[in-house]
């Protein structure tokens, strides 16, 4: 009885602190908005776009976690390698550049997407087959350590092929404005990212909710043994899950490359950011991963782009990983996740 009361008091103190913090952040956002509304919205749009890219990487973490309860540390590195290979496809194979005509750009983008997504779905499924499947019945620590090993291997493959220099592609999708209204603008290269990410999110949602194989994926995530008793081929379903995660990482690699330079280790930090997003939303929860990613994208953009009392980009990592620690301590099930005995 006393301990229950104590817990109540403690949790309400935590809630109050949390509410205070949220109020402070909202106040800070409001002041920034009032001081420079157009700039505020621009920064918000950047945050949304980056958040969407983080989102498809975060989904890769979350669907794999859902089905194997494994944090696939190699996922970020698969993303980075896919971006590097995409740079080869775009620059050396297709030769896309700023002079290309619109049909060539659209066709080139679609071709690159198909090639890279197919390729990295195989890469990721192969990683599962070779590195994780033999450890299916081992204690949970074993595949986790293997995942860290695979992360280094994939990173070093990138290093061996592409060296230490950053790679980029010519601005074949020009960063010119799609629209500009009263100082608020949005550029084509960002819209291209959304035009890739949003349909993929829709496709994944449809697949998981409506299709036979998607339902099998959910079933295996919820009870692997019962799924086997229904006649679901569990190994095949796990392979398909990794293939989907790999193709999403591939798509993310391409759209990231449109706006940023990449090299062999780009996946480390971006992977951690996406992982944080997945945990923030509730690991294993698909809409949660996207929500978490958009929140992180917004937090990062506001932190780096606002002018009134913004901590600035030096603090981005501290803030993002501070959030990770806060969630793990106070709400380990994440924003949309459910409480499970393991708290994950």
């Amino acid at each position: 009885m006393a301990s229950a009361l104590e817990r109540l008091r403690r949790s309400s103190a935590v809630d109050l602190t949390g509410l205070g913090l949220v109020a402070l952040v909202l106040f800070w956002l409001a002041v920034n908005f009032v001081k420079a509304p157009a700039e505020f919205i621009n920064v918000g749009l950047i945050g949304l776009t980056n958040g969407a890219i983080y989102g498809i990487v975060a989904l890769g973490y979350t669907i794999v976690y859902g089905i194997l309860q494994l944090i696939n540390f190699a996922h970020g590195d698969v993303f980075a390698l896919s971006g590097l290979v995409a740079s080869t496809v775009i620059v050396s194979v297709l030769g896309l550049d700023a002079d290309a005509s619109v049909p060539v750009i659209v066709g080139g983008m679609l071709l690159t997407l198909v090639v890279i997504m197919t390729m990295f779905s195989f890469v990721n499924a192969t990683i599962e087959r070779v590195a994780y499947k033999p450890l299916r019945h081992a204690p949970r620590l074993a595949p986790l350590i293997t995942a860290i090993g695979v992360s280094f291997i994939v990173q070093n493959v990138g290093l061996a092929i592409y060296g230490v220099n950053f790679r980029s592609v010519p601005a074949f999708i020009p960063p010119t404005n799609v629209f500009e209204i009263g100082g608020v603008s949005y550029t084509w290269d960002k819209l291209a990212a959304l035009m890739v990410v949003v349909p993929l999110l829709g496709l994944l949602t449809w697949f998981v909710r409506q299709t036979r194989q998607g339902k099998a994926m959910r079933a295996v995530s919820q009870d692997r043994e019962a799924s086997a008793m229904m006649g679901i081929d569990v190994n095949r379903t796990i392979s398909i899950t990794f293939a989907i995660a790999g193709s999403l990482a591939g798509a993310a690699g391409i759209v990231f490359l449109l706006q940023f330079n990449m090299r062999y280790d780009t996946g480390f930090e971006l992977g951690l950011i996406a992982f944080t997003a997945a945990v923030l939303g509730g690991i294993g929860n698909l809409p949660g991963a996207v929500l978490g990613a958009i929140l992180i994208g917004l937090i990062q953009a506001f932190n780096e782009g606002l002018t009134w009392f913004a901590p600035g980009s030096d603090w981005t990592r501290t803030i993002v990983f501070g959030i990770l620690i806060l969630i793990l301590v106070f709400r380990p099930e994440g924003l949309l996740g459910e409480r499970t005995p393991e708290g994950a």
Binding site: K215, R218, A219, Q222, D223, A226, S227, M229, G231, D233
Partner: peptide
């Protein structure tokens, strides 16, 4: 393997029910 056995025509209602908790009855 279990899935080939099920495909062959053996179905089980297991001990402890083992439903998929976050799927609907229809699913």
């Amino acid at each position: 393997t279990p899935h080939t056995i099920v495909k062959g025509g053996i179905a089980q209602s297991p001990e402890g029910r083992r439903l998929f908790p976050r799927m609907t009855v229809i699913e």
